[in-house]
Amino acid sequence: MATALFSHLKYSDCLTVVGISIFTAVVCEAISWVLIYRTSSYKSLKSTIDKASKKLETMKTTAPNGAAAEIYSKKSKTKKIDRVETSLKESSRDLSLFKLKSGGVVAVVLFMVFGFLNSLFEGKTVAKLPFVPFKIVQKMSHRGLSGDDMTDCSMAFLYFLCSISIRTNLQKFLGFSPPRGAAAGGGLFPIPDPKSS
């Protein structure tokens, strides 16, 4: 549709790529919602992480008052902090495992869309870059294009820009982005803590 409206433009294909990316992002979030976000186990996990990270934060910021109680409270406080930290790490790991399930489905969808776009725009310049990208980026931005003009932009680079910016902002807008506490607690493969073993 976009292509028909703007067919007089030389680079109207870029609108098609953006439109398809927006659509894909919405579909991916819908899949994630069905598989993860609406389930009660995800909700409880998320609230656990939020609570634990907030608790940890307040525990670390509040200083013990009273000189006499200081030694005793310091010891018990570190123990408490350790405990909360471990539970936070465990919950974050559970959350990542949980996300892996829908991540697989989303990856398949993204891969299929990429293949579809590739067949549509193979060897075609979909946009003109207003800058000359770095050598490493050129491999992607000039992928499958002939000619030496490095400001020619292939579909792959545009799709990459779209998928990152649109998806991140859509997730943020819908409130689906991972809780901040989880990022601090380590992902799926946390670095083993020598203290705990």
């Binding site: 703007f6 433009l9 030389k10 680079y11 109207s12 870029c14 609108l15 953006v18 946009a127 003109k128 870059l129 207003p130 932009c153 545009l158 990459f160 820009l161 779209c162 990152i164 910016s165 991140t168 902002n169 943020k172």
Partner: peptide, 18 residues
């Protein structure tokens, strides 16, 4: 930062090309 950087590149490229 990263999301805004890619968004900026996207909008800049789109407007420039169109």
């Amino acid at each position: 930062l990263f999301a805004s950087f890619t968004l900026f590149l996207l909008v800049w490229t789109l407007v420039y090309s169109l």
